[in-house]
């Protein structure tokens, strides 16, 4: 048993945890901005899928990884705009709009992928991002190889968490955003445009979800498959509940989830435990549900989440 443990908990394991957590951090923060403004963006799963597809195709044809990232982000922004049109301008049910957006985006990503690549016998692949060792920092024992010998997008995720916390809690824009999510009428009375704030939140949300999709098929993997997201978007929504709508806690939740995910990958690979590998795939989802059940009693959801705002219907 000790041997298994020492095999698992190596520097490589924790570096993998950080890598697995990265797309979840992007997705979770994206969803967080939307929910803090009062919009549950259930389009997340589909947006990540479509962004991954458009980003991957762009890299495949231009050879430029950063152009691919840009394409993925723009795809996310456009999808966020559509979500805004449905839930902010038209005030439609956020649940059904989000599910519709996910169905539409995933359908579109399958359709376009097949249109662009046909049904090739070998999976089209790109040359993915390589890790960048940060000077000096990467030399620190243990922490260096885990945190500072990573992909550029991982560093971006590390910067985005404190940035999101700062913007949300220490800037006027963040205050307006939270007010719109808690009490839109108060925000409206104070001269804040609820519509504009919610649109801004959704565009930002889509951009971050786009980054998540880009990371998955340009850094974590080097190809696009129909199962590239496989529920990660839904996990992000659960992580926000788990993290009580706070960027730090949600990011911590993402790392916890990534630990479980990395652990199941190692257990799958080790011959010590003989179970079908799907049991390990199932494990993170089960634990996510258990985690949600544990914290949901004192959930701190924004008060105006799911409620459309109409000036006329004050």
């Amino acid at each position: 048993m000790n041997e298994i443990l020492s095999q698992i908990f190596q520097v490589g394991f924790f570096a993998a945890v950080i890598r697995i957590a990265t797309p979840l951090v992007f997705g979770t923060l994206g969803e967080l901005f939307a929910e803090r403004a009062g919009i549950l963006n259930l389009g997340i799963e589909g947006i990540m899928m479509l962004a991954a597809m458009s980003g991957f195709s762009t890299v495949f044809f231009t050879g430029s990884l950063w152009l691919g990232v840009l394409a993925a982000v723009l795809t996310g922004v456009v999808a966020g705009l559509v979500m805004g049109l449905l839930t902010v301008s038209l005030g439609l049910s956020q649940h059904v709009s989000g599910i519709g957006l996910t169905l539409l985006c995933s359908g579109l990503s399958f359709y376009c992928y097949r249109l662009i690549f046909g049904q090739p016998s070998t999976l089209p692949a790109i040359k993915p991002f390589e890790t960048v060792a940060l000077p000096v920092l990467a030399e620190i024992p243990i922490i260096g190889p885990i945190l500072f010998n990573q992909f550029a997008l991982v560093y971006l995720a590390m910067l985005i968490v404190p940035a999101a916390a700062f913007v949300l809690f220490h800037t006027p824009w963040g205050l307006n955003l939270r007010t719109v999510g808690e009490n839109p009428l108060a925000a409206f009375s104070a001269g804040v445009s609820v519509t504009a704030m919610r649109y801004q939140a959704l565009l930002l949300s889509g951009a971050l979800m786009g980054l998540a999709g880009a990371f998955l098929c340009m850094a974590q993997y080097n190809a696009y498959t129909f199962g590239v997201i496989s529920g990660r978007g839904w996990v992000c929504i659960a992580l926000i509940v788990f993290g009580q709508w706070n960027p730090w806690k949600s990011a911590a939740g993402a790392i916890l989830f990534a630990c479980i995910d990395a652990l199941q990958l190692r257990l799958q690979a080790s011959s010590a435990i003989n179970l079908p590998y799907q049991v390990f795939l199932m494990l993170p989802f089960v634990l996510t549900i258990v985690g949600m059940a544990l914290v949901s009693r004192n959930a701190l959801a924004p008060a105006a989440l799911l409620k459309p705002f109409r000036k006329e219907a004050r």
């Binding site: 259930l42 529920g231 929504i237 659960a238 989802f285 549900i289 949600m292």
Partner: peptide, 14 residues
């Protein structure tokens, strides 16, 4: 009071 959307979705994968 666990959100039903997320749990029903996650249970599909489980």
């Amino acid at each position: 009071k666990v959100d039903d959307v997320v749990t029903t979705l996650l249970l599909n994968f489980v």
